[in-house]
Design a protein around this nucleic acid. Sequence first.
DNA 1: CCGCAAATGCAACCCTGTTGCAAACAGGTT
DNA 2: AACCTGTTTGCAACAGGGTTGCATTTGCGG
Lengths: 148, 148
Amino acid sequence: MPEISPDPFAAQLRAAAVKVTRPRLRVLAVLSRATAALTHSELEEQLADSPQGILDRVTLYRVLDSLVECGLAQRTLDARGVYRFLSSSVQARHAAHAHFHCQRCGGITCLEQMEVPVADLPAGYSARQVDIEVRGVCAACAPLSGAA
Amino acid sequence: MPEISPDPFAAQLRAAAVKVTRPRLRVLAVLSRATAALTHSELEEQLADSPQGILDRVTLYRVLDSLVECGLAQRTLDARGVYRFLSSSVQARHAAHAHFHCQRCGGITCLEQMEVPVADLPAGYSARQVDIEVRGVCAACAPLSGAA
DNA sequence: CCGCAAATGCAACCCTGTTGCAAACAGGTT
DNA sequence: AACCTGTTTGCAACAGGGTTGCATTTGCGG
């Protein structure tokens, strides 16, 4: 009987007012150990390798949904259109700023110094996130940029 | 015998050095009539409604691939991770302004009124285009977004 | 200890995008 | 005009990500 277990993940779940369940604890553990955003299948693999064995695909989706909904995780789309999940604590270190995409080398650079404008939206719209993508040619590629 | 047909889309295809085929003409026509980027299934629907009837799903994908490859269309990912296609001529009119991506329906709206900040770049970098993507919930989806 | 809502697990499904292959076609050649 | 060849089309089947329905289990407050 774990009355108030010392588990920090359980505490996070309680603080977020969601039930403390084994699948949620397992997912939270993997997510907060990760250094980058993981796809559903990457999470599934890592969970399967754990001593507790596989976690149902659908359950994993639903656990992720609940974690996103209660703010403990974030969901983003990667360049292939696949969802990636990130624990919010990890995300906090990588906040909202502009990115530069070099059209020549494909590299992505963070533009920490560029200020993010306030979204000016039509009535009824609500913004959750503003992404700025500047496309052009980076310093390394500038000398070569004659050929498109 | 269409030596040089008056069809402007055929001319575009010839200029791009790809064969002039009925499916390509049909897709180009729909794309250049569109005011926003369309998904594959939206295109499929619009084509099915035309007098020429349905166009094969796979053919549509391949036609879009060829149009993207020859530069007559552009492909982007929407907020749901679904490809959207835009004729390049439409894209030209849509250059530097912000877009709103609804996270619920995936729709993309132009935010004409939102000013685009000047890119503040490190030395050596040059910007060609600044994309602003505001993510959130659009007016149509707002009423539904509580019951996530 | 009970009860109930929430969460889990399983099976089946949908949708987007791809691959393989035979038949049809575009467009230059004779 | 008929021919030839590489491209394109259409069909069927597949793959992977993500979702839905439903019966069973479980967290947790009473």
